[in-house]
């Protein structure tokens, strides 16, 4: 294992240890998806085989869309805390005096937020589709068990989570207050749902091809966001509150 991989793993492991010690994070991760999906799932189970196909289709689309809210919302607050939280508890400066690079640090932080989120999202999706197969009416089961929805969940969950993480991290790297960072982070991550929303609203026909195209678009956005966030991670600004480039310009050197 390269030194870089060891450093990234160290960041991830530390984050997981902190999650474990702060049970509130775990409880939130578990309960938030329940709140999001409870009502639409109940509605799905109440649909009978005689229901009009358009209603079934819409209800399934809304439910599956809400499942995609999970990877967007869950990591947003964690990511928004990632940098400013370190600064707040005085750990950022010692951390930045080690050989860890900003890319390694950010990648470790983002993976630590993304991995559990995707795990929770997949778990909820699997539980839901299996439950629908076993307990819901056949029209609902038929509508849910479409390859395009499976593909969408498989591809969109990590990509949406990654987007949410990068947006949250960017805000975290520039904010001076944890609360503001977390609120802004959640708010700023939501627009990423536009692409799956357009698919759910049938603006795009939900086919496997459309899912792949949207996934590619999200992936491109994620890569762009990663590059921007890396550039925004300015050690000097984080430590002193002012950017080196700005200061050099002001000092006229």
């Amino acid at each position: 294992m390269s030194q870089s991989a060891i450093r990234i793993r160290a960041v991830i492991r530390k984050e997981f240890q902190e999650y474990r010690r702060n049970r509130f994070i775990i409880y939130t991760m578990g309960t938030l998806p329940l709140i999001f999906t409870a009502l639409p799932v109940i509605t799905l189970f109440s649909i009978s085989n005689t229901e009009a196909p358009s209603i079934v289709k819409t209800q399934v689309a809304i439910t599956l869309l809400l499942l995609l809210v999970i990877p967007v919302v869950l990591p947003a607050t964690i990511a928004a805390y990632s940098v400013i939280g370190e600064r707040d508890q005085g750990t950022l400066e010692p951390l930045l005096t080690t050989p860890v690079t900003r890319e390694e640090f950010l990648l470790g932080k983002s993976l630590a937020a993304t991995i559990p989120t995707v795990g929770v999202a997949y778990t909820f999706f699997i539980v839901l589709v299996v439950a629908i197969r076993l307990g819901a009416s056949s029209v609902v089961a038929h509508q849910v068990w479409q390859p395009s929805w499976f593909l969408a969940e498989l591809l969109f969950a990590p990509l949406l989570a990654a987007w949410s993480v990068w947006v949250g991290t960017a805000i975290s790297a520039r904010s001076s207050d944890v609360r503001v960072a977390q609120q802004l982070g959640t708010l700023a991550s939501l627009p990423a749902l536009v692409l799956p929303l357009l698919m759910s609203l049938q603006v795009f026909k939900p086919t496997a091809a459309v899912a792949i195209v949207i996934a590619l678009a999200l992936a491109a956005i994620d890569v762009g966001a990663w590059r921007i966030v890396s550039k925004m991670f300015d050690r000097e600004r984080l430590i002193t509150g002012a950017s080196a480039v700005t200061m050099r310009a002001e000092a006229g050197t």
Binding site: R7, V11, K14, P94, T98
Partner: peptide, 24 residues
């Protein structure tokens, strides 16, 4: 640094293991 900057929810060993990891 003047302020030790430790992760208070982690043990002493866990803190040191994290930083040892950052050194690779």
């Amino acid at each position: 640094t003047e302020v030790p900057g430790l992760y208070l929810r982690l043990s002493v060993t866990e803190n040191l293991a994290f930083f040892a990891g950052l050194y690779g």
